[in-house]
Amino acid sequence: MIPDDLLYTKTHEWVRMEDDEAVVGITHFAQSQLGDLTFVELPKVGDTVTAGEEMGSVESVKAASEIYSPVDGEVVAVNEELADTPEAINEDPYGEGWMVRVRVTGGQPSDGLLTPEEYAELLEE
């Protein structure tokens, strides 16, 4: 459950680069640890986000977790569907469960993102 066309963070977000934009969500592992999600809080379109800093949060019945932005940039789109169907993140974390689309400053993701192999190693630990 670690798609090999994505980049990852140590805090269990994934990033798909599409030209100078990054699509961001949380990984299969993250959603499985949290359990059935009940609420998602996301930034607004136009907000500036910074790599490694909080940009939102997700909640299940027994847990809550912050979402950290993997990149620097400006939010250009938010998955509004998640407000009503947070379960999409459980069911399809890399597809329907995407969270935000960020126009990345400088067009490139910052250093320090993990490759699929590196992320798999992290989960092994």
């Binding site: 359990g35 059935d36 019945v61 947070p86 379960e87």
Partner: peptide, 13 residues
């Protein structure tokens, strides 16, 4: 008990 295990996810959603 008067009720069985309750669906807490449904309650929160």
């Amino acid at each position: 008990t008067p009720v069985g295990r309750l669906d807490e996810t449904k309650a929160a959603r």
